[in-house]
Each structure stands twice: as C-alpha cells, then as structure tokens.
Amino acid sequence: MKRNIVIASVTAAALLSGTAVAVAGTQSSSTGAPTTHTTNASGTTTRASFSDAAHAALKAVPGTLDSLDRDHGRWDAEILGKDGKWHEVTLDGSNAKVLNQHIDRDTDAEDAAEAKALRNADISATEAARKAASSGTVTSVEFDGDRTPVWEVETVKNHKERDLNVNAQSGKVTQAPSDDDGDDD
C-alpha cells in the first residue's frame, strides 16, 4: 500500500511537471521503505531520492537514522549505530554511493538524551518522510527529541519550501511553526 502511494506521488508530480519518468520500486529490507529510481526521458538517472539515500546510509552503518539532509549535491546522514555510537555518512546526491563516513567523537550529554528519545520513537525517519511526501519532494528529515519528539521534515514543491513536523509516536503530520525570531535557524 505504501509503495503504491509513493509511486502514485511520483507519477502525479511527473504529470504536473510534464516530465516523462519511469519509476521502479523495491522493498528495502533494512528500512522497510520503498526505494525508487527515477529515470528521465533519455534514460539517465537524475538524482538519488530520500529513500535511496536512507537505504544506502543504513547499509553502510546499520542502526537508526537520526537525520538525512540533501545539500549541495550530496546527502548528509547522521546515524545512531547499532554499536551505540553516532556516525556521519556523506552520500553522492546522484547515485547515493557513500563518499565518506566516520564516527562522531564529539558527543555530549545532549547526544545521549537524543539517542534515548530516538530509540523510543515509534515512527522512523523513512516513515516520517513517507507521511510528509504528499507535500512535495523530501529534502531533509531530522529528529528532535527535546520536548515532544518529532521528525522535522522539509519538502519542496513548485520551488517552495515547506516545513512539517511528524509526531514520532503517532505519525500525525502538522505544519511546523514559523521561525519569526529573525535568527535564520
């Protein structure tokens, strides 16, 4: 069912933009999320999707995805590894191949609290991305376990950014509060 929703979302986006695309979906065993490969009319792959990048990052470092952000042609992932350590993985934005990975040795008490909240989340990063995908292309997902644990999801549709929160327990999607304090956070 979820795979059909993803395929339908990609197809709808293609129809709205007038772009010819072909989509192939497979079920990922490590994340449970469908991975998609988008091919343009000339037959070349255009860019790795959130699902592609999440799958590749978790294959490189088994554990729990804490954040995944597309920036400057790359995907940057933070993973709480099964070894209990925080890992950073950088992936190529076009094919999701791992470019770099290392253990984050600069951790503190706040990271320990984040790890605990992340382990207690009922909704994963990939599930949060799926829930927010109807609002556009997912470009960033980050866990925030400070107060009420939520996934902060950024989507882009028609060149407009939209910030959403996905409750880490219930999966309810809400509009993120605006950042009106002028500090560009």
Rank of each mutant, 00 (worst) to 15 (best):
G25T: 15
V166Q: 05
H159R: 08
A132L: 13
W151V: 09
E154D: 05
T46D: 14
D163G: 03
A54E: 08
A96K: 04
D83N: 12
K82V: 05
T35R: 15
S140G: 10
A20L: 12
H37W: 11
T26W: 07
A129S: 08
L16I: 08
S178N: 10
T46C: 04
T36L: 12
T45S: 14
T46W: 02
S124L: 07
A112K: 10
D111I: 00
P177F: 03
T174L: 04
A113M: 12
D185V: 02
A57S: 13
A176H: 06
S51M: 11
K2I: 10
K97H: 15
A12P: 06
D69P: 03
G73V: 02
D104C: 00
A48K: 14
D52C: 11
A129T: 12
R3L: 01
A128G: 04
S67V: 07
L58D: 03
A109Y: 01
S94K: 11
L16F: 08
D144N: 15
G81P: 01
I103R: 00
T90V: 07
A14C: 09
D104Q: 02
H87T: 02
L99G: 02
T107Q: 03
N95Q: 03
A129G: 09
A24N: 14
L15E: 09
A48I: 03
S178T: 11
A77E: 00
S178D: 12
G84N: 15
H55V: 05
G63I: 01
G32E: 11
A121E: 08
A14Q: 08
D66L: 12
H102S: 08
L65P: 01
K59N: 12
